[in-house]
Design a binder for these strands. Structure first.
Length: 666
RNA sequence: GCCGGAUUAGCACAGUGGUAGUGCAGCGGUUUUGUAAACCGAAGGUCGCGGGUUCAAAUCCUGCAUCCGGCACCA
């Protein structure tokens, strides 16, 4: 053990310093500016408190606000601690549990004192004020290492039962780190933290909401109060973030769905969509698009029953595994007139389909299938009903009745990789046609699963190989494997779309399933004349029409590409003298296949422009006396910054027809 | 399903124990208008549903339903 340690800085220079020197001291030695700016250190690539002594030779980099990702993480984590301290200061008896940084801020889960009930948003202003007090006091955060026993004892003596439980159950047998912060407030934490609360900008955070959250994320556990905040390095960043939230709210498909008259939802059919004429145009355009795409890929479209006998669901395993999400109906007329039982004791039950797969196997099983019939690719715009937990319902994104662009490929073992690879190519083309970038993830075997380890090894390898061969297992495609996230019967490849404001949505999937063909006894005759079990690939690209349309609305902020826009052009008159001409233009547009309407109302052109702009009509063709005389239109594109352009009717039609052509037909 | 909040005219919202209001839309009229809201007028409501307290309830209490924000679950 030497008393000197060798510290290597990012520029390659080296310094010999006494063991126990802190990164803060080294920063000070380099210069006062750096000393002030340094928030934390990276020691051999690991984030370190700036006050934590260096005990060995190391690569050292000082983290400043310029290292935004690390700096934000530190700041948010500090805000979380201060939040918890503030809550305990204001509401004695509150227990603390866990409080991490998030993508845009932080939260802390606390258990409110039994005497007062859960926290509400009304409590937030007081908590924020207290947090600012703690920040202003500018007290240092100090790291200490405690023995597990001492820490458990401390938590127990303070009545912190959640912390005590957690300290006892943290894996490993090492000592635990704690931090003192604020007004001698202790939390168990891996760190790192800033040197002092004064490093935080008291105007750079805002508490945003309160909600319930289960202790350790488990429904069986206590419900805690989760207090959310957003936290940044400075007020400018915070304001920019709040503005982004407002912009995101303007894209909300529920709001745009109403403004654009696309669909509605109502109490009497909650979780099921009423598609209005405008919205159903989008829906049908997508159906047509998908039919062309999958037919081109060698699939055959089928349609299967909405309701099947419960015995069928028993055999497929859904009755046992999925019944609580299924709508079950008696196969008799329920007695609703008398007080007696609604259904007879020996009632037969049926259920609305929550998935299409069993029905597709039943089609496969009709007649004898030869190895020559494989791969057999069945697709269906399959309308499914799932009785989702009520708290999960959300606009078009989570509904109880939805239509999947579902499909099942029945194939031999040796065909799997080719089929998956072809599917990757198909999905790639579809997502690019809609302007999405995406990432692909492989969800690996979950804890609870059917089948042998060998089967899972095989299934995971097949899917991985197919993506590698399709050239998509790269960083560009966000390739990632997710341990434990697969379905109980199969690993899943998942396609996650990234939308215009950076959010991700899981839509497409392909899964290789050997369980369901077994349960429903599907087989084909092989070259050897023997019966064999086909593998079943479950696959979808949109996922569901409902959710995909929701994503499209938000991605485009309602300004759908012309080929999807419900109304592609409105011909608006300035004076009633142009009415006949407007009708003529619309007739020509309609004849060319454009969804066009007239607006002959007795309103000023300003009014019409505003109204059709808000309705997100992509093309407004303005006609007055001049245009009627000259046989032209003044084309105004959606978005007021683009100037209008006077064009001939034929010119406009040619342009609109080009834009209204679906991307796969261009 | 769990925690919290909400539900008033087609839409957005005000109204906290004493005669239900505003703006926009819709309807009738005037205006013929050149690129994001012309003017005037008359209408429009079992205040989510049920029960209770009160002389009196949109308002207070209570049960239920739906919605919103999260949690858990998920296409």
């Amino acid at each position: 053990m030497t008393e000197q340690v060798k510290i290597t800085l990012p520029d390659g220079s080296q310094r010999d310093v006494a063991r126990g020197t802190t990164p803060a001291e080294i920063a000070a030695a380099i210069g006062p500016g750096l000393a002030k700016a340094a928030l934390a250190a990276k020691v051999d690539g690991e984030l370190y408190d700036i006050m934590r002594p260096l005990e060995a030779d190391a690569q050292l980099a000082l983290v400043t606000a310029k290292d935004e990702k690390d700096a934000l993480e530190l700041v948010r984590h500090d805000f979380a601690h201060i939040l918890a301290e503030a809550v305990q200061a204001l509401f004695p008896g509150t227990q603390i549990t866990f409080g991490p940084a998030t993508d845009d801020g932080f939260y802390y889960d606390v258990a409110a004192p039994a005497s007062r009930g859960p926290f509400t948003e009304e409590d937030l202003p007081a908590i924020e004020a207290k947090m600012r007090e703690i920040i202003a006091a500018d007290k240092p955060l100090r790291r200490e290492v405690w023995s597990r026993e001492a820490l458990i004892e401390r938590w127990a003596s303070q009545g912190e039962s959640f912390k005590a439980e957690w300290a006892a159950e943290l894996p490993g047998d090492e000592d635990l780190t704690v931090y003192w912060s604020g007004n001698d407030w202790l939390d168990m934490c891996r760190g790192p933290h800033l040197a002092s609360t004064g490093k935080l900008d008291p105007q750079a955070f805002k508490l945003t909401r309160v909600s319930g959250a289960y202790w350790r994320g488990d429904q069986k556990n206590a419900m805690l109060s989760r207090i959310y905040g957003t936290g940044w390095l400075n007020k400018k960043q915070l304001d920019a973030h709040l503005l982004r939230l407002e912009e995101a709210a303007k894209r909300d498909h529920r709001r745009l769905g109403q403004e654009m008259d696309l669909f509605h939802l109502q109490q009497e059919a909650h979780g099921s969509v009423f598609w209005h004429p405008n919205g159903y145009v989008i829906y049908r355009a997508l159906e047509d698009y998908m039919r062309r795409a999958v037919n081109g890929a060698g699939s055959k479209e089928v349609k299967t029953p909405q309701v099947m006998d419960a015995r069928q669901w028993e055999q497929s395993g859904h009755w046992g595994k999925y019944r609580e999400n299924m709508f079950v109906i008696p196969d008799e007329t329920p007695n609703i007139e008398d007080d007696g039982p609604m259904v007879s004791n020996d009632a037969q039950w049926m259920a609305l389909k929550p998935m299409n797969c069993p029905a597709h196997i039943l089609i496969f099983k009709q007649g004898i299938k030869s190895y020559r019939d494989l791969p057999l690719r069945l697709v269906e715009n399959g309308c499914c009903h799932r009785n989702e937990p009520h708290g999960a319902l959300h606009g078009l994104m989570r509904v109880r009745q939805f239509t999947q662009d579902d499909g099942h490929i029945f194939c031999r073992e040796d065909q799997i990789v080719d089929e998956v690879q072809d599917f990757c190519k198909l999905a790639d083309r579809v997502y690019k046609d809609f302007g999405f970038t995406y990432s692909i993830k492989l969800a690996l075997r979950p804890e609870k699963r059917f089948g042998t380890e060998e089967m899972w090894d095989l299934a995971e390898t097949e899917l991985r190989d197919a993506v590698v061969r399709a050239g998509l297992a790269t960083e560009e495609y966000g390739w990632e494997e997710l341990p434990g996230e697969g379905a109980f019967y199969a690993p899943k490849l998942e396609w996650h779309l990234t939308d215009a404001i950076g959010r991700t949505w899981q839509v497409g999937t392909i899964q290789s399933d050997r369980v369901l063909p077994e349960r429903l006894d599907a087989n084909y005759v092989g070259e050897d004349g023997e019966k064999h079990r086909p593998v079943m690939l479950h696959r979808a690209i949109f996922g569901s029409y409902e959710r995909f349309i929701g994503i499209l609305i938000e991605h485009f902020a309602g300004k759908l590409p012309v080929w999807l826009a419900p109304t592609q052009a409105v011909v608006a008159t300035i004076v009633s003298d142009a009415d006949d001409y407007a009708k003529e233009v619309v007739a020509k547009l309609a004849a060319a296949g454009i969804r066009a309407e007239t607006d002959l109302r007795n309103e000023k052109i300003n009014y019409k422009v505003r109204e059709h702009s808000l309705a997100k009509v992509p093309n407004l063709l303005v006609v007055g006396r001049r245009e009627a005389e000259e046989g032209t239109v003044a084309l105004r594109r959606l978005g007021s910054d683009e100037h209008q352009k006077v064009m001939t009717v034929d010119g406009v039609i040619a342009q609109l027809v080009a834009e209204a052509t679906p991307p796969d037909l261009r």
